[in-house]
Computed example of a mutant assay.
Amino acid sequence: MITQIFAISSSLIAGIISFKKAKQAHPENGTVILEYSQLRFVSDNIQLQGEISPKSYIFANYVVLRLEGFYQSHWLIISAASVEDLYFSRLKRAVIAVQQPT
């Protein structure tokens, strides 16, 4: 009985932490400024700036960005529905350019 309560409570805590991290990585609104491989994201809650890492991923309707800053790195998820098609394709091209070997 105690083991079950412990397992449920630890799962609940892990779920809350995961939800907060996912919510932070996928903001609802904000401004993306793209300059070559540098990206700046500004919203009401967070401000991120860094270089797009080759660890970034492109999916059909999402771009999962790994931004590497001076001393930290952050994940940022941008959906196609939240930006115009032209800007989303530019963002995908920037990720592909970073992933290409030099």
Rank of each mutant, 00 (worst) to 15 (best):
M1C: 03
M1L: 02
M1N: 03
M1K: 02
Q4N: 14
Q4G: 11
I5P: 07
I5G: 04
I8C: 08
S9R: 07
S9Q: 14
S10V: 13
S11Q: 07
I16A: 13
I16F: 12
I17P: 00
S18L: 13
K20Q: 09
K20C: 06
A22M: 11
A22K: 14
K23S: 09
K23G: 09
A25N: 07
G30Q: 01
I33W: 09
I33F: 11
L34V: 05
L34E: 08
L34A: 08
E35P: 01
S37K: 13
Q38V: 04
R40G: 04
R40Q: 14
R40Y: 09
R40L: 03
R40T: 07
D44C: 00
I46N: 13
I46P: 05
Q47Y: 03
Q47P: 04
Q47V: 08
L48T: 01
L48P: 10
L48N: 03
I52M: 02
S53I: 03
S53H: 00
S53R: 00
P54F: 05
P54G: 05
K55Y: 15
Y57Q: 07
Y57H: 04
Y57E: 11
I58Q: 10
F59E: 15
F59S: 15
A60R: 12
A60S: 14
A60P: 12
Y62H: 14
V63G: 06
V63I: 14
V63M: 05
V63H: 06
E68I: 05
G69K: 01
F70Y: 01
Q72D: 12
Q72V: 06
Q72E: 10
S73E: 08
H74Y: 07
W75E: 09
W75M: 09
I77M: 14
I78K: 00
S79M: 03
S82I: 09
S82Y: 11
D85I: 06
L86M: 10
Y87R: 06
F88T: 07
F88K: 08
S89P: 10
L91G: 11
R93Q: 15
R93A: 15
A94Y: 01
I96G: 05
V98L: 02
Q99N: 15
Q100V: 04
P101S: 12
T102R: 06
